[in-house]
Amino acid sequence: MRQKRDSSSSTSPCAPLRDAYHNCFNRWYAEKFMKGQWDKEECLSEWEKYRACLSQYLEDKHLSRFLEAEGVVSSTVHDDLGEGAASGASQ
């Protein structure tokens, strides 16, 4: 796909940061993760910028239940993985 995406149709103020992160992730997924290089995550700075914007936006829109839903999911994930793995969870 094109590296640049038309975010003008989006209503989210985080769309440019989201696109930057998703482009980075898609590259990492296809070129590294799918080729057996799953020792470390990349795109961390893109993720942090996007995530900060998104948290603010969801709060403003009273959509923080998304974040609650996330809490539920990630806590099951942690249970599933056991203690050791959970430390890498939050960046």
Binding site: C14, H22, E70
Partner: peptide, 15 residues
């Protein structure tokens, strides 16, 4: 939007 992402290197699982 991506809310959360977790890579577990020992198992090769991505959540």
């Amino acid at each position: 939007d991506t809310l959360n992402r977790l890579l577990d290197p020992p198992s090769g699982k991505l959540y």
